[in-house]
Design a protein around this nucleic acid. Structure first.
Lengths: 137, 137
DNA sequence: ATTAACTTAGATTTTTATTATCCGCGTTTA
DNA sequence: TAAACGCGGATAATAAAAATCTAAGTTAAT
């Protein structure tokens, strides 16, 4: 059980946008992280659709945050990037669990996932903007 | 982000063992759930190695619980079946995150996963043994 | 003692999901 | 009007998960 690399890309891209007050293009973001540009483009699209970043099209376009980094929690990012999550198999429709609504396994896993998100709410993009690096210089 | 089907198989098998006080073979367990026998065999092996069930070999062998179902939490099962979990990609070594120990992302995700497990500790195999079915009859 | 039903463990294959790439289009700036 | 960008769909490559296969060792009954 792990998060997709998309969540990783998203978090690090948001961090870059937070550091750089300016707009950044996918190209810049990808180069900065040394990752696939076209894949990152998808990630940025998702963030854009979720209104966590704003895009400007055309030449010299790019992305910028729609709100200050302290207002973007990891929970929010995870929810956007991981999409509809089925922490327990039973939660999606592969096994046709007939008592889904009353299923206690379902209930327990759903709750536990909520607790996870709740914990992630405590940390914002600003919080993780490595202040330790500054200290070390 | 979701748990593997192995966790699903494990939980349901433990439930079956809890209901059936007797030993059950992989064959019986698989038929009962209508799933792959040889794959379930792997799952049961893991549970056996983790000492959550006990196996007896040879003809008329099978598995039984090593402790009462109220003492087996979903947290325990998840930990066994999902193995070393990387809720955040950064936690494993794909990206060579140099500051792992001090990384705040790492820290946040680790914590959130702990919260998830803690919540799952509250529910035991006994708890999910569908008492609602009994009520409805 | 031999057979049948079982667990164990490794190796291999199949299937599915994730990650990455590609392409054509619409938009903006120089 | 060309260059640099975002958008979104389609497709390909890769990796991981799930399933299957095989051979061995164990026990109980015949």
């Amino acid at each position: 059980m792990k998060t997709s690399i998309k969540t990783d890309y998203a978090i690090h891209s948001l961090m870059l946008l937070a550091k750089n007050n300016n707009e950044m293009s996918v190209n810049e973001l990808a180069k900065n992280q040394d990752i696939s540009k076209s894949y990152l483009a998808k990630v940025m699209q998702k963030l854009s659709n979720a209104n966590i970043v704003q895009s400007t099209e055309g030449k010299s376009g790019g992305y910028k945050l729609t709100k200050p980094p302290e207002e973007i929690s990891l929970s929010e990012v995870v929810k956007i990037m991981e999409g509809k999550i089925n922490v327990f198999e039973c939660l999606d429709d592969k096994r046709n669990c007939k008592i889904k609504k009353r299923c206690k396994i379902h209930f327990a896993f759903k709750n536990s996932y909520q607790k996870m998100l709740k914990e992630l709410e405590k940390t914002s993009i600003k919080d993780i903007l490595d202040p330790e690096l500054k200290k070390e210089r």
